[in-house]
Design a protein around this nucleic acid. Structure first.
Lengths: 259, 259
DNA sequence: AAGTGGTCTAGACCACAAT
DNA sequence: TTGTGGTCTAGACCACTTT
């Protein structure tokens, strides 16, 4: 049981490896409490700081969470599916609900979202994709979505201000038929979208808004929608906590001659 | 300059926040060295351990890397685009190259990959998607791809053994026209693919194979290819380091009546 | 009151690469 | 040889929740 003295692997590594192994082989199941730090101190014969460094490794791998002051626990995961394609699908009419709400409540979960609408200077990232000059104004709908009371993802949608001024998009409420449909009614039907997905660690702000535990990376999904004429009319930025999402989509073979 | 005594934010947090701020506002640019630990110790008036904890936070956010024993540095990023759609596109004929190699060298970078082929019992994850029973045998092509000498991603492709036995897929060499084409020649042309993308921290094994630095999450991309008849004939698992990739794809509006 | 983890200190020794 | 960060120890005090 003593884990000291080995090749030249640091103790903290050995401790992390040992516990990770126990998680992998089921000796420790999701939801189980790890031995207390005091206990591990004795088991491995090292100082408390070293035990903590070992646990720290597992926390940063997303395998363990700390529930103070109860102890450390093996993390449980229950990702939900995220389908970018859903945005383009026709949807049933359900007043006071938009795509997210509709999809989610279909799963029998309690869906809710907060909405803020404001007018801001386009962030560089957005301006570039909307083919605007830096500093031009855009309308933004910021939403935080909750599922069963837990924050689930962030979705900020940007629109060129002149397109949506005075439209339903500017009102901080759910849009029954979806913002895309409103945009279409205004003469800007989107027929094509470019999706980009980045994988990175969250910013401190994202950690707060989404209540992320350490070791949780996020997907950063940027979707730019274009009209038939090739005009970019919408940029949607979605932040997807890795522990709550699977991005899923389907593809069909492109028409390609031969080969 | 002294950062002590504040509301009740831990010193290590204040230190991390201070340095993060400097990175954000450009006082510290990508590639710059951070002040040494000894220097920060003096600047903030705390013990070295506390300084290290502050830096640790930034490392786990992926903002800082340690280049021992030179010092800590602001991380540089240069993601490359990853396009799942590329697999389905017709490609120019270039002997000894497959999709990855072709795409990459088009960018003027030196591409290389290692290939191992073996026959294994299907891992549960793969068996499920190939609609096989647990423990059935599959052929797997494991590749590690390098760009300019750096490991770039891992791609493991699984095929039901009976489909590909004795085909070119079993040989540990580049497949000129692509494995999908070989499969098509064998009578299993894929017309549809289901993509799933998970975002998580890497396993220690992935860290080693891809030489990831701490604070680097990965995208875990599982692509299942189906024939016209709906038979799953291929599962490709790709591990994409977040600091080297952007996943990108395009969508067109699905044909939907009205709404 | 007891027990958990969270933070911090002070000091020690080590490995590694540049000088 | 020097200076960097990496590891480890021993001990202290704190905050929070449960008992």
């Amino acid at each position: 049981m003593a884990v000291r003295k080995l090749g030249r692997t640091p103790y903290k590594q050995q401790i992390a490896d040992d516990l990770r192994e126990q998680i992998a082989d089921g000796s420790l199941s999701p939801g189980d409490q790890l031995p207390t730090e005091a206990e591990l101190e004795k088991r491995y014969g090292v100082a408390r700081g070293t035990v903590r460094q070992g646990i720290e490794i597992l926390i940063n791998e997303g395998l363990v969470v700390s529930a103070r002051p109860k102890g450390h626990f093996v993390r449980e995961r229950k990702p939900m599916v995220f389908r970018p394609q859903a945005e383009f699908r026709p949807r049933p009419y359900t007043p006071e609900m938009d795509a997210f709400m509709t999809e989610s409540s279909a799963d029998g979960r309690e869906a809710r979202q907060t909405i803020e609408v404001s007018i801001v200077e386009a962030p560089a990232e957005v301006a570039k994709r909307l083919q605007l000059d830096a500093g031009q104004l855009v309308a933004v709908r910021r939403r935080v979505r909750f599922l069963d009371g837990e924050p689930f993802n962030i979705n900020d949608s940007y629109f060129p201000l002149d397109l949506v001024q005075d439209s339903e998009i500017m009102r901080p409420q759910n849009i029954t038929q979806g913002a895309n449909e409103v945009l279409a009614d205004l003469g800007y039907r989107q027929v094509r979208a470019l999706d980009e997905l980045y994988v990175r660690m969250p910013t401190p702000e994202e950690v707060k808004r989404l209540d992320l535990s350490p070791g949780t990376p996020v997907g950063y999904h940027v979707c730019t929608g274009f009209t038939e004429e090739g005009k970019a009319v919408r940029v949607a930025v979605t932040v997807l906590p890795g522990d709550r999402h699977v991005v899923s989509y389907e593809r069909r073979r492109e028409t390609d001659p031969a080969s």
